[in-house]
Simulated assay, not measured.
Amino acid sequence: MTEIKPQKVLVVEDEPHISEGLKLNLKLKGFLVKIAPDGPTGLAQWKEFEPHLIILDVMLPGLDGLSILQHIRLEDERIPILILSAKNTAEDRIKGFKNGVDDYLTKPFHLDEFLLRVDRLLTRAQWQNNEIKKKTPQNEIKDIYIFGANSIDFQNGNATCHAGDISLTEQELKLLKLFISNRGSVLPRKKILEIGWGYAVGTSSRTVDNFVVRFRKYFEKNPKKPAYFVSKRSVGYVFDH
């Protein structure tokens, strides 16, 4: 008989009385649980622990929950994420959903409601995974983004552009997704670092500038007069398309 492995839940929460309470009740339901008390640890545990579900606070030390959410969504669009936060306005919830959260529960909360939402998210994720497995390669739609004379194939990691046919690195693909998903909006260098690399502090903004220079060489007809990757003096960059 095949052994059924417990599903894994990552709780990113800096208040110990909440995180330990969630861990206890989730373990009683049969889940394997890990706690991350701050943003950078949360990102590291997401990579190492490979959870089936993430419970995410918004106001966290080191790196805020929305930046963590955006960072994860650049690499994984399917993992269910539930925000659990004291930020309870309609604007807060809308911001969470716009950035890709699956569900949003405000503090204080009822434990039974929380556990029902967890079960619902995991059930839905399992159904979606089963549907994806049923697809044949011929039925899969390639994730291709076209702008001007350029096209980016995110599935295969290639691009056809002014520089010719090129292969893109994992980090280049991640940053391109970030720019495209925020097209028309100014992205400050600090925010690009937080979302693109998961760094809250301590990394030079020149890291971002160097990648933008590279993108201009790839995708701009005239890199010295960029039409797509546009600088906003003393702030950051905007992808204009």
Rank of each mutant, 00 (worst) to 15 (best):
M1S: 15
E3M: 15
P6G: 08
P6F: 10
Q7W: 07
K8P: 08
L10Q: 06
V12R: 02
E13S: 07
P16C: 01
P16K: 03
I18M: 05
E20H: 14
G21V: 03
N25W: 05
L26T: 03
L32N: 09
K34Y: 09
G39K: 07
G39I: 12
T41L: 12
L43D: 06
L53H: 08
I54E: 10
I54R: 00
D57P: 02
G62K: 06
L63T: 09
L69S: 02
Q70I: 02
R73D: 02
L74C: 11
E77M: 02
R78I: 14
I79A: 01
L84Q: 03
T89S: 06
A90Q: 06
D92E: 06
R93Q: 08
I94Y: 08
K95D: 12
F97M: 10
F97A: 06
D103N: 05
D103P: 00
Y104S: 04
Y104Q: 04
K107P: 06
H110K: 11
H110S: 07
E113Y: 07
R117Q: 15
R120L: 11
R124M: 13
N130M: 13
E131N: 05
K134C: 12
T136Q: 11
P137D: 11
N139R: 10
N139Y: 00
E140W: 03
I146W: 06
G148D: 08
D153C: 10
T160P: 08
H162F: 14
G164M: 11
G164C: 08
D165N: 04
Q171L: 15
K174V: 01
K174S: 08
L175N: 07
L178C: 01
F179I: 00
I180F: 02
S181A: 08
E194W: 01
I195G: 01
Y199D: 13
S205E: 14
V208L: 08
N210L: 14
F211G: 01
V212M: 07
V213S: 06
R214N: 14
R214L: 15
F219N: 07
K221T: 07
G236E: 12
Y237P: 10
F239D: 02
F239W: 08
D240G: 00
